[in-house]
Amino acid sequence: QVALSRTQVCGILREELFQGDAFHQSDTHIFIIMGASGDLAKKKIYPTIWWLFRDGLLPENTFIVGYARSRLTVADIRKQSEPFFKATPEEKLKLEDFFARNSYVAGQYDDAASYQRLNSHMNALHLGSQANRLFYLALPPTVYEAVTKNIHESCMSQIGWNRIIVEKPFGRDLQSSDRLSNHISSLFREDQIYRIDHYLGKEMVQNLMVLRFANRIFGPIWNRDNIACVILTFKEPFGTEGRGGYFDEFGIIRDVMQNHLLQMLCLVAMEKPASTNSDDVRDEKVKVLKCISEVQANNVVLGQYVGNPDGEGEATKGYLDDPTVPRGSTTATFAAVVLYVENERWDGVPFILRCGKALNERKAEVRLQFHDVAGDIFHQQCKRNELVIRVQPNEAVYTKMMTKKPGMFFNPEESELDLTYGNRYKNVKLPDAYERLILDVFCGSQMHFVRSDELREAWRIFTPLLHQIELEKPKPIPYIYGSRGPTEADELMKRVGFQYEGTYKWVNPHKL
């Protein structure tokens, strides 16, 4: 086992960053958080920038500027975001240094004079007029057009580079997404736009490419001749908990499936790229999406959770019991969808996408189930092999396979070949997804960000279904809070070829 401390991990990262040409360590950078008073800024962006600063992973002359409508001070920003920093008493001095680099400007999102004030403020910072500028839009999409237009007109660096990070949702359907994309691309070049999907920053999602293309053993079996089906799962054990009003506007397909799960599907299904260059990788992902037809209604199961009468606390409440959810809402909190990649490698292999709230566990994984062994000599005792990439929690890679049961006879039983990170790298604290992705933006690497043509294809696949749901308002199937979801989803999976045995229990190697 390799035991690495946080300091050692960050030392390795620093070495990698400083050796590259793309990370300008000594240049002045300004990180501007648009929507600095909001939840995302408070819980994710400010803490992430602090962790990067604490670990010495930001360029040395980096300033952080918050911008929002609320009249706040840096002290206010500190008060609301610091509880999420997880700072230790030993880091007190470092924390003071961090907040000394912070400033805040209040202004409207659609007022040109406010942006001119913001620009004057940035120019007044040390070497601010020639600094590289990175704008993070932690804002609702309704203000994107006004904000990007004003940034472009008043706040661009004339000497350094300018980059803009856009948070999902990128529209509600193909038409609104196209409108937003066309607007942003009329102001910024594609190499300046970073559409963030934080799932692409997760260690195991990034590991998929290495697993596939750096190991000879997987190449020959990664196709329709050997793989019976692919299941991509995202499960949350909690409901909307008072935030249903926002969720109800989008629903589970827009929230998770059309982005996170579809991105994971691309990494499983794509061909080997010409290189690890950002556009070479994204070219292959677009090719996969172009091979997927629009979702067919007979390959869809929609569910909505109801309270568990035997549960406790939140578990007793259904989705419609959330006071922020519109009365009688038919918005799905669970969806199972089957897609097919219609190309030579994957023809006929079902890709089953499942996601839901208020389920029995927290889990995100990719599961490849292989065909049955031909010419069975073990009297149907063999179960199908599976390769599982567990994204969260407890990152893991393992192969479910058959071995001989101890004893006199040739009785096979299920076991696993474990390729888990935790076994080799004991207690290594890896940077989280937002840390990686923000560092990628500083480096100018777009590999783990969504390109406009990729986004367009993703919406093309799901828009007809979303429009049909909005028009017909089908009643989702009720499922109990804390269950596996509607049984109809299991029946759909069985119908397209997935075999669920229920006889195997994964042993978490992190707890051995």
Rank of each mutant, 00 (worst) to 15 (best):
P393R: 05
A433K: 00
M401R: 05
Y434I: 02
G303S: 00
Y425W: 08
D280I: 12
N394V: 05
L262I: 14
M264G: 02
V288S: 08
G313N: 12
A297F: 14
R354A: 01
T403V: 11
L465W: 13
A358T: 02
G422H: 10
E365K: 02
L437M: 06
G303D: 02
Q304T: 08
D432V: 06
V286H: 08
H379G: 11
D321I: 04
D322K: 00
E457L: 09
I389R: 02
Y421T: 03
T503E: 11
C443I: 11
Y434C: 00
I352T: 05
L339R: 00
L339D: 00
G313R: 10
G485C: 05
E416V: 03
E488I: 09
N411R: 08
K317W: 08
V366D: 04
C355Q: 04
M401P: 03
T463C: 06
V496Q: 10
V300W: 11
L267I: 11
M402W: 07
K287P: 01
C355K: 03
L353F: 08
V441N: 00
S293V: 06
P486N: 03
A336H: 08
I377S: 09
I438M: 10
G444S: 09
I480P: 10
A396Y: 05
D279R: 13
V507Q: 15
M257A: 11
G303L: 02
E435H: 08
R327F: 12
V295I: 12
P393I: 04
P412A: 10
R362H: 11
G348C: 05
Y421Q: 01
C382K: 12
G328V: 09
R354I: 01
V450A: 09
G318R: 06
Y481S: 08
M402S: 09
L430T: 15
A336E: 15
L455I: 00
P476T: 11
I253K: 00
Y319E: 03
P476W: 01
F409R: 14
R282T: 04
T399R: 02
S329N: 04
M408W: 05
I377E: 07
R495L: 10
R495Y: 13
D432Q: 10
N259E: 03
L471A: 15
F449L: 04
L471N: 15
A269V: 06
N394T: 08
W506C: 03
V281Q: 04
L267R: 01
V450F: 04
P406G: 06
N308M: 10
Q499G: 12
L368A: 07
I377T: 10
V281C: 09
L289Y: 06
R456G: 12
L368S: 01
F498M: 15
D279K: 12
G444A: 10
E271S: 07
G497Q: 07
V341G: 02
G482F: 04
A274E: 11
R495H: 14
R495D: 14
M264I: 11
Q468E: 14
T463F: 04
V295A: 15
I477A: 11
G356V: 01
N299A: 10
E342P: 13
W346S: 04
D432G: 10
L419H: 04
T399C: 14
E342D: 15
K272E: 10
R367N: 02
F410V: 14
E457N: 13
N360I: 04
F410K: 08
Q258D: 01
Q296M: 13
V306L: 11
W506K: 05
P406L: 06
L302G: 03
P323E: 15
T463N: 10
L492V: 07
S483A: 11
D418K: 05
A489Q: 12
E344T: 11
L387Q: 01
L339M: 12
L465A: 09
K400H: 00
K290N: 13
H448Y: 08
A335F: 04
R460G: 08
M447C: 07
L261F: 05
V349Y: 03
M493I: 15
I480V: 15
N385E: 00
R495M: 11
C266I: 05
A315S: 14
Y500V: 06
S293E: 12
R254H: 03
P478F: 08
L267Q: 08
M408R: 08
G407P: 03
L320A: 12
S278Q: 10
K404R: 00
D322M: 06
R254G: 02
Q499S: 13
A269F: 04
H260Q: 00
R495Q: 11
H379S: 15
D255T: 01
Q468H: 14
Y421W: 08
D440L: 02
R282I: 04
P273M: 05
L437H: 00
L302I: 09
D310K: 13
R424D: 06
L320C: 08
E342T: 11
V450H: 03
W346Y: 03
D321Y: 05
N308Q: 13
N277D: 15
V256R: 04
C291P: 04
I480L: 14
E284P: 05
W459E: 02
G444H: 07
Q258Y: 03
S278E: 09
P323A: 15
K404I: 06
K400C: 01
D347Q: 13
M447G: 03
G422E: 15
S445P: 05
P309W: 10
